[in-house]
């Protein structure tokens, strides 16, 4: 039983990384119609920048938690302004290819600069030990990562449901053309939303840094699972991205614990089952012809 609770916590912590990143992917897809293949690379950058801040500048985890998302927001703004924007009018496939290419560039650049062996990172002071609840020992950092992800997801949820900006983002996500016809300059929100989505991926990277091997390739597997999360949750659904993120984290953790050989397959079996029963995902809107 205590093992099961530990696996559950590990799953929820990993799920938090997926949920944050998928949330970013969902808002970008919603407002721009862009499937950002480089989301995994942005998650990797978040972790790598944290490691570099610590290793070269002795800037610790707590500062990174604030600074890295801001840097990634700026990176996202540049990416949208310099690259993504010019392809928006074309078939969405062009931006998918662009961000795929960008992924290769980012991964190779990190490899060139920092090698392939991985960068060291420590669990921040104060979160290193374990907490004993009853007879179960739980990793303090996993509890922190999990709670922090939930808090950020709830905060983003409130931003989307309770503010005028959120209302505009939801409306643009649902029907961009109609929203323009109702007097909203949707284009004005495109750059900040893109930056915001990238910042969320970067934030997931910072949170993952103390618990993952920080390598140039860490985003490659991540993005594949992230797409499974988005399909399970329903493309374009904010709530779906979060719920499916935590769900996939759990399923993956149980898979690794109880069926290690099949751990990777389990997620995609889950995805296939969801798509069979609900083609538009758990929270996706039914396609209306």
């Amino acid at each position: 039983m205590s093992e099961f609770i530990q696996y559950t916590l590990q799953g929820l912590a990993a799920g938090g990384f997926y949920a944050l990143s998928a949330l970013g992917l969902a808002v970008i897809f919603g407002v721009l119609g862009v499937v950002n293949f480089s989301h995994g690379a942005c998650y990797m950058l978040g972790a790598v920048i944290s490691a570099v801040l610590l290793g070269e500048l002795h800037v610790g985890f707590w500062v990174a938690l604030v600074v890295v998302p801001i840097l990634m927001f700026a990176f996202g703004v540049l990416m949208e302004r310099l690259l993504v924007r010019w392809l928006l009018a074309l078939d969405p496939l062009y931006n998918f290819l662009l961000t795929f290419g960008l992924t290769l560039v980012l991964v190779e650049a990190v490899k060139q600069r920092y090698g392939v062996s991985g960068l060291p990172y420590e669990v921040p002071a104060g979160l290193g030990g374990q907490v004993t609840v009853g007879s179960v020992n739980l990793s303090t950092y996993a509890i922190f990562a999990c709670l922090f992800s939930v808090v950020v997801c709830v905060a983003v949820g409130l931003l989307l449901t309770k503010t005028r900006i959120g209302m505009i983002v939801r409306a643009s996500t649902e029907a961009p053309e109609r929203t323009r016809a109702l007097g909203i300059n949707v284009g004005r929100w495109v750059t900040p939303v893109f930056g915001f989505g990238i910042a969320l991926a970067g934030l997931a990277g910072v949170l993952a840094a103390p618990t993952r091997a920080i390598t140039a390739e860490m985003g490659s597997n991540f993005i594949i699972i992230l797409f499974a999360v988005v399909v399970i949750g329903g493309l374009g659904s904010i709530l779906g991205a979060v719920v499916a993120g935590f769900l996939v984290g759990l399923v993956e953790a149980y898979g690794i614990a109880y069926a290690p050989t099949y751990a990777q397959i389990v997620i995609f079996v889950l995805m296939a089952l969801v798509v069979l029963v609900r083609p538009s995902g758990l929270f996706g809107r039914e396609e209306v012809a």
Binding site: M167, E174, I184
Partner: peptide
Amino acid sequence: GIYSSLTVAENLLLPP
């Protein structure tokens, strides 16, 4: 052109 992800009040308040 009613938004399903917006409430009735939000549908009214969306346009400037």
